[in-house]
Design a protein around this nucleic acid. Structure first.
Lengths: 257, 257
DNA sequence: GAGTGGTCTAGACCACACG
DNA sequence: GTGTGGTCTAGACCACTCC
C-alpha cells in the first residue's frame, strides 16, 4: 500500500484544524489529484485509518465529511467510492437541479432541444475576473444556451468558465453531452469535479430580444439565478447566470427535505 | 432526577429506528411538550445518557441530530440548551431569512413599517386544508401583511396558520412583535416551535391592485415563495405565500455555505 | 478547580452485499 | 463465509467557561 502517512513529526500541522478535518482535507486533495478515479473504490476504513495513523472512528468522521460534501459515496456491505455523477444522478439532481417541473408527468415539460447561442474564449469583464480569481491575462470560456421544452423556452443560461480548467470544453462536446447533467459532463469529459455552489436569486423580466427570439409574451417574469461553482478543492471555476420561465416549473431550494 | 428511561423491556421499540434516532425522537417530543423551556439548560450528556440507558456517544449523536434540526444549541464549557430564537437570531436568520439586502449597508434597505392588511379566522380552502391536515370543521388564521422599507414595498405576505396551535395569535401581537423574527415570535409568544420548512419558488408579476396600492410600477417582477412550516415534531402548522420585490434584495438559498 | 461539551481512541457487534 | 460500512460502547484527554 502507498504510504500517505499524515504525521511525520510532532509539528506538521500548526493549523487549528481538528484531526478528522485535516485527514478529510488531505483526502479531498488526493481525490482531486486523481489518486482514485470517479467511481473507483477506496481502501476500506481500517486500511485508510492505518495509512493516516488515526483511529477508525476518526477516519470514519473524515470520510463522512466528504460524503456530506458529495465527494464520496459509501454503501454498506460494498465499500467507499469516489462520487461519480453518472452513477448517481438522483443524488445530484437533488443537489444541483433545483428547477423542477410542477407536474413531472406532463409531456410538455420534457426538454426537446438545447440551442447554443454563442461560444467564445475571451478575457472576462472585471467583475467575472474577480469572481473566478482570474487576471486580465487569462482567457475564459463565455457561452450561452437556451433550453426548450414543448411548452416553449424554459431557461436561458450564460456561462463563464475558467479557461485553464475548461480547456477541453468545445461547442461540440457541450452540445453533445445531451442526457448527462452539466456537472456530470464537466466531471467525466473535462475532469472538473464540482463540490459546492453559491447561488443568489432575483426576480426579473425576460429581456425584449429574448422575448422576440423565442416568441414569448412581454412582459414574461423570470427568476434569475446567479451561481458560482467551486471544485471539491474550493476553487471558483464557473459562473452561471440563468433566466428561468417558471409557469410550468418551480425552484425548490431545499435538498435536505 | 426524573426517570424517563427508554428501555423498560426488551421489545419496547419494534420500529426500525437506530438507537440514537429513537433517543433523539423521544427527546424532541419532550422538548415539544415543554419539559424544558426555550433557553433552559438540559442535564449534561452523561446524565442524559444514563437516563436513556445509552452510552455517552449515542446520547451525543442523538443530541447532535437535534442541533442540526435547530432544536438544541450546545456550547462548549457551558451546556446544552433548548434553542431560543431570540438569543440566537444570527443562526435563525441564516436558516429562515433568505431574502437579504444586496448591500446591507444601504439605508434604504432598513425596514420602516409593517402594514396589516387583514386578519381573519376562517375555514381554509380545500388546498390549504390538505396542506395543513385540517378538515372543513377546523378554523385557521388567514392574514396578510406588507413590509415596507424606505425604498418602498419589499414583501407582501399571506399566512394561513392552524387555528389550534395559533390560538393566541391576534392582530395586536402579530403587529407588535416588531423586532423579533416571525418564527421567534411564534415560539416565545405562541409556544409554537418551527423545526423545518419546505419552500418552492416561482417568478410572478406583482398583481395590479398591489401595484396601485403601493405605488409600484407595472409590470413589477417578483419572486413568489410558498412555504410550509413544520414544528419540531413534523406537523405542518403554517402555510406562507410571499411576494418579494428583489431590486434591492436577493434570495440566498444556501445556508450551508 | 470544577463542570461542560468536543475530540479521539479501541474494539465489539450488527446489517448488508456478494460469491 | 468473508468483507464491507453502520452502530454502539466505554473511557481518555483536551478546550472552554465560570467561579
Amino acid at each position: 500500500m502507498d504510504n500517505f502517512s499524515l504525521i511525520e513529526s510532532d509539528f506538521v500541522f500548526p493549523q487549528r484544524l481538528t484531526l478528522f478535518e485535516q485527514v478529510s482535507k488531505t483526502l479531498a486533495e488526493m481525490i482531486c489529484h486523481g489518486k482514485w478515479a470517479p467511481g473507483e473504490m477506496l481502501p476500506n476504513e481500517i486500511e485508510l485509518a492505518h495509512s493516516f495513523n488515526v483511529s477508525q472512528g476518526t477516519m470514519r468522521r473524515a470520510l463522512n465529511l466528504l460524503v456530506d460534501k458529495g465527494a464520496l459515496i459509501r454503501r454498506q456491505g460494498k465499500g467507499t467510492f469516489v462520487a461519480e455523477m453518472r452513477a448517481n444522478e438522483a443524488h445530484f439532481q437533488k443537489r444541483y437541479i433545483k428547477l423542477v417541473p410542477d407536474d413531472p408527468e406532463k409531456d410538455e415539460c420534457v426538454p426537446t432541444a438545447t440551442k447554443l447561442l454563442f461560444f467564445d474564449r475571451v478575457v472576462a469583464p472585471l467583475e467575472i475576473q474577480t469572481i473566478l480569481k482570474q487576471t486580465s491575462e487569462d482567457l475564459v470560456v463565455h457561452t450561452a444556451r437556451a433550453l426548450m421544452a414543448s411548452s416553449g423556452l424554459v431557461t436561458f443560461d450564460e456561462i463563464w468558465a475558467r479557461g485553464k480548467e475548461f480547456e477541453k470544453l468545445t461547442q461540440e462536446n457541450l452540445l453533445n453531452h445531451k442526457e448527462k447533467l452539466l456537472y456530470s459532463f464537466y466531471q467525466t469529459e473535462l475532469g472538473v469535479s464540482i463540490g459546492r455552489c453559491e447561488e443568489t436569486i432575483k426576480a426579473a423580466l425576460l429581456p425584449p430580444n429574448l422575448c422576440y427570439m423565442f416568441s414569448m409574451p412581454s412582459p414574461t417574469p423570470v427568476i434569475e439565478i446567479r451561481r458560482i461553482a467551486y471544485t471539491v478543492n474550493d476553487e471558483p471555476v464557473e459562473y452561471h447566470r440563468q433566466l428561468c420561465i417558471t409557469d410550468k416549473y418551480h425552484y425548490a431550494p431545499m435538498p435536505e427535505a
